[in-house]
C-alpha cells in the first residue's frame, strides 16, 4: 500500500511530461491519409507506417503474447490503411480512431481464429468502420474504373493530358480548349485523337 502511494505521483508526473512531448499531430496524419487516397503516395504511407507500426506492434504483442502474431497484426492493419485510405473521412473522427478501429478489428478476428477456431470475420459487423457514405448510384466498379483511368491518363505526355482532362473532366469543348490553351483547334483535335488512341491501347491491355 505504502509503495503504491509513493509510486503514484511520479507515475503521474511521467504521464504529464509525455503528454506534452508526444502530442499527436492530427492534421498531419489526415493529410498523409489524403495523399495515400488521392495519389497512392508511398512516401506518405511510409510516414503513416512509421508513426503507427511500432505502436501497433507493441500493443498487439501485449495482447497476443507473440512477436510473430504481433507482426501479422501490423501487416494486416497497415495493409488495410493502404487499401482503405480513400474511405477515411475526417468528418467522422480522428485518423487515430480510424486506425485504432482497424487494428482492434484485425486483432479480434485473429484471436477468434485461434481461440474459437473460426474463419469468420465478424469484427466489421460488430465495429463498423466510420467511412464516408456512398449513395446507391455510386457503383464501385465505376469508382475503380475512374481511378484506373486517371492513373493511365497521368502516364500520357503533359500536353495530351491537358486536353484529355479539359475535354472529359472539365467538360470543355474543343473550341473552348483551343482558346483556353491558346492553340489552333487542329492541334487540340490531333492531341485528343493521339491521347485516345493511347488510352484505348492501355485500357485494352488492362482488360484482357
Amino acid at each position: 500500500m505504502q509503495l503504491l502511494h509513493s509510486e503514484l505521483p511520479s507515475h503521474k508526473a511521467n504521464a504529464t511530461s509525455s503528454d506534452m512531448t508526444n502530442k499527436i499531430d492530427h492534421p498531419q496524419l489526415c493529410q498523409w491519409l489524403k495523399l495515400i487516397a488521392d495519389n497512392r503516395d508511398k512516401q506518405a504511407f511510409t510516414e503513416v507506417f512509421s508513426f503507427f507500426a511500432p505502436k501497433i506492434k507493441g500493443i498487439a504483442q501485449g495482447k497476443l503474447n507473440s512477436e510473430a502474431l504481433a507482426s501479422e497484426v501490423v501487416q494486416d492493419t497497415m495493409t488495410n490503411v493502404w487499401r482503405k485510405a480513400h474511405l477515411f473521412d475526417d468528418n467522422k473522427g480522428a485518423a487515430t480512431t480510424w486506425v485504432y478501429t482497424i487494428m482492434r478489428n484485425v486483432t479480434f478476428d485473429l484471436l477468434r481464429k485461434m481461440k474459437a477456431n473460426k474463419e469468420d470475420t465478424l469484427s466489421d459487423d460488430i465495429w463498423p468502420l466510420a467511412e464516408s457514405e456512398h449513395t446507391e448510384d455510386d457503383v464501385f466498379s465505376d469508382h475503380i474504373q475512374s481511378r484506373n483511368l486517371k492513373g493511365i491518363i497521368d502516364t500520357l505526355p503533359e500536353n495530351q493530358q491537358q486536353v484529355v482532362k479539359g475535354f472529359y473532366f472539365l467538360e470543355m469543348s474543343q473550341e473552348q480548349l483551343a482558346v483556353h490553351l491558346n492553340l489552333p483547334l487542329g492541334t487540340i483535335k490531333s492531341r485528343l485523337r493521339l491521347a485516345l488512341g493511347k488510352l484505348k491501347l492501355k485500357l485494352g491491355e488492362d482488360h484482357d
Binding site: 480522428a94 487515430t96 480512431t97
Partner: peptide, 8 residues
C-alpha cells in the same frame, strides 16, 4: 485510440 498512439 488517442492514448494508444500517443506514447512510444
Amino acid at each position: 485510440a488517442e492514448a494508444s498512439f500517443e506514447q512510444d
